[in-house]
């Protein structure tokens, strides 16, 4: 770090003609790169601040109803007059409750974790311990390629292949054979809905978790595995009872990052979730909606609101999603840093 400081200071002092130039060069470089660094540092605060200021009228207008009401209604756009609450006005009859969307986001992300965490752990373990050394680079490349597929392409596949399969094959079979289990019976709908969202989201987060699982296991010393084997455990026991617990914090952090990704994913979910409004899902086939998806699907109609309150309420939704994901990410990153430091790894 200090090399450049040195170049401007101590060493150069003796050869004075260039000393000033050095100082200027140093200051200029420092200032220009500092501006860039400031931007990278501040952009999150700028985004959050701007969205909060823009959403402020909606925050006052909606009050706590925003978090407790399941009704999202931009109000009567053709009536006269306005509805005023707490000094801010919306269209008559307007009510902006985000409960359905918040519930949908959290539920689909949680179910995604339920499906994808065990799967990703298994795949990560297989990748490290069961794939022949020669095939490993290929398998790694495939996993990374999977993480690079754009979310609209997942959405496209979901809409054209997965959704018809759910509606024609999976849903009828599940409701007729397993319908006695709560949330598995009842109307099957069109195939778009909770189960389709969870399926697509799982496909999208599994590669991320697999990559981290693989990396933390590879970074861990082999001694733990060998010691456990020497004590008489099978390779699976050594893996799950000795190695995995030793890298627990890294894996938990990667699960949280994946949760953050799942809760913020927009396009793929938007294409297969069924865009429910004002209704909670009644079973796993019901249409749902998420905060991220509703920001896209509701903007067109929000733009018709002459009072602008619908648009500001969407900003309040964006703030809600932003703060949820910020909290998840800050905790996960802090855990990762802590794990790295404890286990003696550098900045990853």
């Amino acid at each position: 770090m200090a090399t450049l400081e040195m170049s401007a200071g101590g060493v150069a002092k003796a050869t004075s003609p260039s000393a000033l130039q050095r100082k200027i060069s140093q200051t200029l470089l420092r200032a220009l790169t500092g501006v860039a660094a400031l931007f990278s540092f501040a952009i999150i605060f700028i985004m959050l601040f701007f969205l909060l200021v823009y959403a402020y009228p909606a925050i006052r207008f909606n009050g706590w109803g925003f978090f407790t009401s399941p009704i999202w209604n931009i109000g009567n756009q053709y009536g006269s007059g306005v509805a005023t609450r707490n000094g801010f006005s919306g269209a008559p009859g307007a009510e902006f409750g985000a409960l359905v969307f918040i519930f949908g986001s959290v539920l689909s992300a949680l179910l995604t974790m339920l499906v994808s965490v065990p799967l990703a752990l298994m795949v990560g373990l297989a990748l490290v311990y069961r794939i022949p050394r020669q095939l490993r680079p290929i398998a790694n490349a495939l996993v990374e390629l999977m993480a690079g597929i754009p979310s609209v392409v997942y959405g496209l596949w979901g809409l054209v292949v997965l959704v018809p399969w759910i509606s024609n094959a999976l849903a009828p079979w599940v409701t007729s054979h397993l319908g006695f289990i709560p949330f598995l019976g009842g109307p099957t709908g069109s195939g778009t809905g909770l189960i389709a969202s969870v399926f697509i989201l799982s496909l999208m987060v599994i590669p991320i978790m697999v990559a981290t699982t693989r990396d933390v296991i590879l970074a861990q010393s082999n001694a733990i595995f060998e010691a456990s084997m020497a004590l008489g455990s099978t390779s699976w026991q050594a893996m799950t009872r000795a190695v995995l617990p030793s890298v627990r914090s890294g894996i938990v952090a990667s699960i949280m990052l994946a949760f953050g990704r799942a809760i913020g994913e927009t396009m793929a979910v938007l294409m297969v979730c069924g865009s429910a409004i004002n209704a909670f899902p009644s079973n796993i086939f019901s249409p749902v909606n998420t905060i991220a998806a509703v920001i896209v699907s509701q903007l067109e109609s929000a733009l018709t609101d002459a009072t602008g309150m619908a648009q500001r309420s969407l900003a309040e939704l964006a703030c809600t999603l932003f703060i949820i994901t910020l909290l998840i990410n800050v905790i996960a990153r802090a855990m990762m840093r802590g794990a790295d430091r404890r286990e003696g790894r550098g900045h990853a």
Binding site: L4, R30, A37, G260, L321
Partner: peptide, 30 residues
């Protein structure tokens, strides 16, 4: 460049942390 060459150790950590957190901000929020 600033982080590696000029930042005091504390700022290094803060910048890296903020950039990591930025990677988790949902695209629709941006």
């Amino acid at each position: 460049i600033w982080t590696v060459e000029f930042a005091p150790p504390g700022m290094k950590r803060v910048i890296r942390f903020m950039v990591d957190v930025l990677a988790g901000v949902p695209s629709i929020v941006v």
